[in-house]
Structures are given as C-alpha cells and as structure tokens.
C-alpha cells in the first residue's frame, strides 16, 4: 500500500473508531461545501456508479457488487417487504429497498450511502450490529459510512427511510 494509502487507512480507521460503540445512530451533518469533491482511492468509483433497481423483497433484490458504486432506484416504502422490520422504518412518503451482498472473505466491510438513510445488514441469524459508523471524505457526497464484520455468505442489505427515490450505495472492505 502506498504511503498515502496508509495515512488514509489510518484516518478512516480513526474516523470510524470515533463512532464505534455508537452503533445504529445517525451520522453528523456534512460540512458546508463550496463545490463537490471527487473522492479518490478506494472511493474513486463513487463518481461513476452503475444503475440498479432495488428489490421490493429479498427474492427480487439485485446483487450489490463489492467495490463498485451503484446508483440505486428505490421503491415507495409501503411497497417494500423487508425481511426484518427496520428499526427506523420511514414514513409512507419515504423510499426504501433491498440489495444482496455476497461475501467471500472474512473481513470488516464498509457500506457507504449518499444520504442518512437507515441501513440494515441481515445475515442468517438476523440483523447484524454495526461496529462503527461515520461519514465519508468531506464534500464527496458520501454522507454515511457504516461498518460491519462479515463472514463469507450472502447478506440482505435493507435501505429504509430515505427521503428521495434514489441513493448511491457502495460496499467495500475496510482497510
């Protein structure tokens, strides 16, 4: 890993560690930004997302590829059939949806969102507790980053209580 990568990895570890233990809470507001900033490094794909449509139930949910940003079209909340009722379900005028995450390597993973939407990761034993949460690099539009320790297997990613019908999502291994 290049030196900058080490520094950035340390920064993100510290940034997320600040919020470790405050699991499930919302993230702080993004700072005021004069202009958007394109993220670099592992978040570089954020600015070039693929378009996918979220599922209204787990059976219809598309795969969220690791390391690839996705611009996800969501569904009106009353039409979404979640596997586990989200702790913050969102109102009838909000949007949500379901994605699938396939994990092949035991590691910690981050899921980045462009909004403060509610996020659940459901494994075979139910909803997982996140281990840290924070935000992405300032002014990049990465509004919320939640970290989960994941073992190989298939996971359901539930997005709930989003105010708009689209959201950018990216899942990637933690440094």
């Amino acid at each position: 890993m290049p030196k900058n990568g080490v520094i950035m990895a340390g920064f993100w570890a510290a940034a997320l560690a600040l919020w470790a233990g405050q699991v499930w809470a919302q993230t702080p507001a993004a700072p005021a930004c004069a202009a958007p900033v394109a993220p670099s490094g592992e978040y570089a794909p954020w600015t070039n997302p693929v378009a996918i449509k979220a599922g209204g139930d787990p059976a219809a949910a598309p795969l969220l590829p690791l390391g690839t940003a996705a611009r996800v079209t969501l569904i009106a909340t009353p039409k979404v059939k979640y596997e586990v009722r989200p702790e913050k379900p969102g109102g009838t005028v909000s949007y949500g949806g379901i994605l699938i995450l396939d994990i092949t390597k035991n590691s910690s993973y981050r899921i980045a969102l462009s909004s403060a939407a509610w996020l659940d990761v459901i494994g075979k034993d139910g909803a997982l507790r996140s281990t840290a949460h924070g935000h992405g690099p300032d002014c990049t539009g990465i509004r919320k980053v939640v970290e989960f320790p994941l073992q190989p297997g298939r996971y359901t990613v539930q997005i709930a209580a989003n105010g708009a019908d689209e959201i950018t999502v990216m899942a990637l291994p933690s440094p």
Binding site: T77, K88, P89, G90, G91, T92, V93, S94, Y95, S115, A116, A117, A161, N162, G163, A164
Partner: peptide
C-alpha cells in the same frame, strides 16, 4: 416518520 417533510425522520 410521516411527521417529517420527506418521511425520513420521526
């Protein structure tokens, strides 16, 4: 959360 503008906050 329908008590909020976009249904995102209760």
């Amino acid at each position: 959360a329908d008590l909020s503008r976009d249904g995102s906050m209760s």
